[in-house]
Design a binder for these strands. Sequence first.
DNA 1: TCTCTAAACTAACAAGTGTTAGTTGAATTA
DNA 2: TAATTCAACTAACACTTGTTAGTTTAGAGA
Lengths: 189, 189
Amino acid sequence: MTQQTRKDEIIKTAAKLFKEKGYNAVTMRDLATAMGMKAASLYNHIKSKQEILKEIIISLAEEFTNGMDAIYNSENSNIDKLKQIVAMHVNITACNTNQMASLNSDWMHLEDQLDYYLQLRNDYEANFIKIINQGIRASEIKQSNPEVIMFSMLSTLRSLYLWIPKKEDLNANDLANSLSEVLIHGINK
Amino acid sequence: MTQQTRKDEIIKTAAKLFKEKGYNAVTMRDLATAMGMKAASLYNHIKSKQEILKEIIISLAEEFTNGMDAIYNSENSNIDKLKQIVAMHVNITACNTNQMASLNSDWMHLEDQLDYYLQLRNDYEANFIKIINQGIRASEIKQSNPEVIMFSMLSTLRSLYLWIPKKEDLNANDLANSLSEVLIHGINK
DNA sequence: TCTCTAAACTAACAAGTGTTAGTTGAATTA
DNA sequence: TAATTCAACTAACACTTGTTAGTTTAGAGA
């Protein structure tokens, strides 16, 4: 139990450093200093640097996968499903800004788990685009390139981690709502 | 002249490698192998690894700054200015996909030029948001949070480098148009 | 009190890092 | 032809990297 807590602290601290400089630019000595210990002591709690990255990225990716599955299989309109996806990204990102930076920028440094991660991401995007296609077929969504729509939404949602920390005044609900408004209804009068 | 060409080849090759693995994960020996030479030989053409990164990022950043200044000072409606910004991002990104990856992911590894880069980026965003605010005041753009609008557009535009290489069939004009449509008019019917 | 264990430490290693010095052969210029 | 320059090379450097081995210290449970 204490073990778990200490390990979690290390991972959390690592995520913060990874966000600032990227996985490869952060050394185990950097991480140790930030934890107030020596580099070798880290290995009482973690197996390797690589394991830290894996813990950060895979658990988050699985959270997104589970959320997407729930939304995909729900009974809402397709536009509402898209709104739920926006809300999910805002919520997960608000609670895990540092980890989201690794998910977005350092996934390519996964080794053993790289294929698994890519599979989760592909499945996620496949579900996303299916929702868009269903929305177009049901005339909820304009007849335009579904990939452009997904790309545009997903780019914005994946960049949230850069932006949420600067806007702590805005609460998650308000942000999700105005984001949905802009992404779905556009900006022009 | 030959010197210039060879140096440019190195920078171009470096950009490709940086895109795949990030600045810190690419060694001078990796770059040399990709160029078909030994690491030490690179230094006949470039001053340092850091110089390569600087050449890639700063020239691109200045291109965006110049483009933005021209658009900002033009006589079009604010909505049209936004469309021109979209087109500029598509065009610059289409010609520089690899370099754009460094601009987006490795700017924090700039050393001497970091402050200059950040200044260019801040100025760019300041002009962007001024256009949005003018558009709102002129009733061309919906009354909603200008920062949310900019964030959403800019996130999409900054991610283009990830997506354009996968869609070589789509020409730059068509892409700019459908992107403008989605970003400005939204996706719902 | 004695034992065990968690969690820190010091010291070190082998591999890899960016970079420099000095050299060589081919091409270009005088 | 002789001199110079270009652009590659080999060899090596000082330093940093992730990681391991073995040791120490403090607290918990018997």
